[in-house]
């Protein structure tokens, strides 16, 4: 998606006078699968996990990053002339190569400004709480009519705890419905204060087995499951979300264990099976990273239905797609 024009040109972080500033990668208006009603998602950049199937790989690192979309490049050469570090070179008739090691982001960003074709974009803007909420407020009428609101996602929103707290608090003060979409991998001390300002928690449970979880995401799941119990104890409505990745976490055993865990909790509104898709795959390439799941095909609908059927006896409502 594209940031609105006013945020489109990258500007290095301005000097701040105490006000919390967050690193936002994008907004997505008319989001209809991430919490109730019509919502705007605010993507906060930076995440401690390294999930192999990540569909927002541009949101992993907690700093602005260059993305290069070769298909958009028209070979105009403007970026080459502009780069103060001379780290961009021609690469083929219609392309460039960027030496990221030599690049002076986050201070620079000059190439993005002259790349009219949006072949070079910079993911990550430093925005204040008011700037974010001004954007969120644009769709207020839609939220009011559909029971929607704002969803803070990422990346891992709790990876910017101070900013997230300020955002959630200010959003609630403006009467917005708030949700967070989290991996649950954060210190409970930073999670707890935010909870008071949330209406819904969308909580990923990627694997029940600690080893497998570590292998697939780079981190252990003990803290995640502990935090989920704590969120539940607060009485907040939870949607447990399982990204259903073929061959990685879609075994019957894991799904049953996940459902059993969800069933032990008191405030799980639903367990959402999110069928794997590959729409984020191109972004791995734009970041010059290898996609670990290259060639993995999504489930057919019947397979997803069959997997959901495994959980039929569960007291928790199971949905496909959320």
């Amino acid at each position: 998606m594209t940031l609105r024009k006013r945020f489109q040109l990258y500007a290095p972080k301005a000097a701040q006078a105490g006000e919390p500033v967050g690193l936002v990668s994008d907004f997505q208006r008319f989001s209809i699968h991430d919490g109730p009603g019509i919502r705007t998602i605010v993507f906060l950049k930076g995440c401690p996990l390294r999930c192999q199937w990540c569909q927002n790989p541009e949101d992993m690192l907690p700093r602005p990053e260059l993305l290069y979309i070769r298909n958009n490049c028209i070979g105009c050469g403007k970026c080459l002339e502009t780069c103060p570090a001379r780290c961009i070179t021609a690469d083929g008739p219609h392309g460039v190569a960027i030496d990221k090691a030599a690049c002076r982001l986050p201070e620079c960003g000059a190439c993005q400004a002259v790349c009219y074709a949006n072949a070079i974009t910079i993911c990550g803007r430093h925005l204040t709480v008011d700037e974010v909420l001004e954007e969120v407020e644009l769709d207020r009428e839609f939220y009011d009519r559909s029971g929607g609101g704002v969803t803070f996602s990422g990346g891992e929103p709790f990876a910017q705890p101070r900013f997230l707290l300020a955002l959630a608090r200010a959003a609630k003060a403006r009467g917005l419905d708030t949700a967070v979409e989290t991996s649950g991998y954060a210190d409970w001390e930073v999670m707890l204060p935010v909870m008071a300002h949330l209406d819904t928690v969308l909580y990923d449970v990627k694997h029940m087995d600690p080893q497998a979880h570590r292998r697939l995401t780079g981190v252990d799941n003990a803290r995640i499951l502990d935090n989920l119990r704590r969120v539940d104890a607060l009485g907040l409505p939870i949607r447990v979300r399982v990204p259903l990745v073929p061959g990685l976490n879609d075994g019957p055993e894991n799904l049953r264990r996940t459902a059993a865990f969800a069933a032990e909790l008191s405030h799980v509104a639903a367990l959402d099976l999110l069928p794997y898709h590959r729409m984020g795959e191109p972004k791995w390439g734009q970041l010059e990273k290898d996609y670990p799941l290259r060639g993995v095909s999504p489930h057919a609908r019947e397979e997803v239905v069959a997997l959901a059927a495994l959980l039929e006896g569960s007291p928790v409502r199971v949905t496909i797609g959320g």
């Binding site: 989001s31 569909q55 298909n71 999110l274 069928p275 898709h277 729409m279 191109p282 959320g322």
Partner: peptide, 25 residues
């Protein structure tokens, strides 16, 4: 724009294999 659960993208910017996924979905 295609909005498949939890994600949306400009259809024509996706590569063919992914477009095929979306068509079947």
């Amino acid at each position: 724009v295609v909005r498949v659960a939890g994600y949306s993208a400009f259809f024509t910017s996706l590569d063919q294999a992914i477009q095929e996924d979306i068509i079947s979905r």
